[in-house]
Design a protein around this nucleic acid. Structure first.
Length: 271
DNA sequence: AAATTCTCCTGAAGGC
DNA sequence: TGCCTTCAGGAGAATT
């Protein structure tokens, strides 16, 4: 499931191969994603050049002189580069065809999105209320502590809230909380300043580690070149319910917080 | 206003 | 073997 490291991996993977390529044709087989894919891109894009390719939160941004293509992978989406396009299968919803390469969007669960914006991307409704990037200096202990004070919601829910900080999904929230020794169900406003400092560092550390490993491949994540990510081998709590804590051997517990599985160690993660 | 729940979707896994 | 049920999950929308 793509989280920030996975999107970053894909972003880096397509930057060079698509650099300055000219869109030739857009094939939309299934426009019904989270929102309908605007058909206008089929007419708009051909003939224009790919500019900067970047990432904001878990959104991939392909800039052009006419506007920005916004791609979100939802939880089962991925992008693959193909020199020659293979025959489309069931969930291959969109192909962006260039002269000598194609970018194929595949998403079995269709929670993703492909949108088009002609305005400043920062004014787009989806981007208007986004918090800071977790790996930027804007995301620091002071910011996080201030943002969380008086909040009653669970600390895990808070760090997964994109208005507070972007790009932290279920996997990395669980991993960071374990590293910081914080009980995921703790009220955000009750987490001490020292713990917040640890948490902030833990989020950055885990995300960096995962990017280095090329992302986390659980079931089907693959980079744009088809290679899996290797961060799954470094997971300490996510998906390890009932298995022994890597620090103290206590069997890990799973609680549901806001409809999300939250695995933690009842010994190492104090309340 | 803030917090929680609902919703979209399909593949995988488990039960019988 | 196969059908049915349950679950996972990003994040905006709806509800409390």
């Amino acid at each position: 499931m793509p989280e920030l490291p996975e999107v970053e991996t894909i972003c880096r993977g397509i930057q060079k191969p698509l650099q300055a390529k000219i869109f030739k044709k857009i094939i939309i087989r299934q426009p019904q994603l989270r929102w309908p894919i605007p058909k206008s891109i089929c007419k708009l894009l051909p003939g224009i050049e790919v500019g900067d390719i970047s990432r904001r939160a878990k959104y991939l941004l392909l800039q052009t002189s006419r506007g920005t293509l916004i791609i979100h992978l939802g939880m089962s989406g991925y992008l693959r580069l193909h020199p020659i396009l293979p025959k489309a299968t069931k969930h291959d919803h969109v192909d962006f065809v260039f002269n000598d390469i194609s970018l194929r969007y595949t998403d079995p669960r269709r929670f993703g999105a492909i949108l088009w914006s002609e305005d400043d991307i920062n004014n787009h409704p989806l981007f208007l209320h986004l918090g800071p990037e977790p790996l930027s200096s804007d995301f620091n202990a002071r910011y996080l502590f201030n943002k969380l004070k008086n909040k009653k919601t669970a600390i895990k829910t808070a760090i997964m809230n994109s208005q507070i900080v972007v790009g932290v999904g279920n996997i990395y929230a669980a991993e960071a909380l374990f590293l910081a020794g914080i009980y995921p169900g703790e009220s955000a406003g009750d987490v001490t300043q020292l713990q917040i400092t640890k948490l902030c560092q833990a989020i950055k550390k885990k995300l960096k580690q995962a990017i280095k490993a090329g992302g986390t491949t659980l079931k089907d994540f693959q980079a744009s070149d088809g290679k899996p990510g290797y961060f799954a081998q470094q997971l300490t709590v996510y998906g390890r319910e009932t298995k022994p804590c890597l620090i103290c051997q206590t069997p890990l517990k799973n609680i549901i917080i806001n409809q999300r599985a939250s695995v933690y160690c009842s010994t190492c993660q104090s309340r």
